[in-house]
């Protein structure tokens, strides 16, 4: 029975990948008209991706979702808003500061800043700038998740906060150095990793289920939205200050 479910999941993971394979093959053969390099690696790599996706989904239902939910219930039962916010902050900060996509983007941004003459050229200044940027984004995600959790507890409508955030972004853009704007907008998208998303989603939905008068569908989602909005504002502020 278990084996059967596993094979079913393997098959559905494979289906998820078919579009990528189709796009790559069609473009390579029909548009670029070049033979596919390294067919062996392509096949083995694809099998790996299928297996990885299957294991991930299995672990998601067995571990990440239950952890997020049970912690949400435990905090709701404990009734301490302070500890819940502290947990939300740590979760946001901790997961973002080590995010590989962010590390890459921060390094790139530091190179741009050095070329544009915002900071002194030289490795030390570049590394300092990159680290500062990473800490800024991590801080902003930590704050974002805390505000999001506070919103679920208080039951504020999500769109007030999001629209307020948008207005903040729009108001800040003309004053930010032009070199930083592209990176700031992009940094919103790269902050949320594969492990953070399920945990944070389960936390939000669990909280909204546990607190009386909240609807998991309307109130439970929205944490990720904050985590992709605040970095834009914080990175622009970072660019203005330095």
């Amino acid at each position: 029975m278990l084996k059967n479910a596993f094979i079913k999941q393997l098959f559905s993971s494979f289906l998820d990948l078919v579009p990528i394979l189709a796009v790559v093959l069609v473009f390579q053969v029909l548009v670029i008209r070049q033979p596919i390099p390294d067919v062996g690696n392509l096949i083995v790599g694809t099998l790996f991706v299928v297996l990885g996706l299957t294991l991930f989904v299995q672990g998601l239902e067995q571990s990440l979702f239950p952890i997020g939910e049970s912690m949400a219930y435990a905090f709701a039962l404990k009734g301490s808003v302070f500890w819940l916010l502290a947990f939300a902050f740590c979760l946001g900060f901790g997961t973002t500061v080590a995010e590989p996509a962010l590390i890459a983007v921060a390094q790139e941004a530091a190179n741009i800043a050095a070329k544009a003459g915002i900071i002194q050229p030289g490795n030390d200044a570049i590394n300092d700038y990159a680290l500062g940027l990473r800490l800024t984004v991590a801080l902003s995600v930590g704050i974002a998740i805390s505000i999001g959790v506070l919103r679920i507890i208080r039951g504020w409508p999500l769109y007030y906060l999001i629209i307020g955030g948008y207005c903040g972004v729009i108001a800040m853009t003309p004053f930010a150095p032009p070199e930083i704007i592209g990176i700031a907008y992009d940094s919103g998208g790269v902050t949320t990793s594969t492990i953070t998303v399920p945990l944070v989603t389960a936390l939000g939905v669990g909280l909204a289920t546990a607190i009386k008068g909240r609807n998991p569908m309307t109130d439970g989602f929205g944490l990720i939205a904050f985590a992709s909005l605040t970095p834009i504002i914080f990175v622009m502020a970072y660019g203005m200050l330095i």
Partner: peptide, 20 residues
């Protein structure tokens, strides 16, 4: 489950780096 997630992500990334 946590180990599944770890292994899953590692396989996923490794496969992507090899193939796609």
């Amino acid at each position: 489950g946590f180990i599944y997630v770890l292994l899953g992500i590692a396989f996923f990334l490794e496969g992507l780096q090899m193939a796609l």
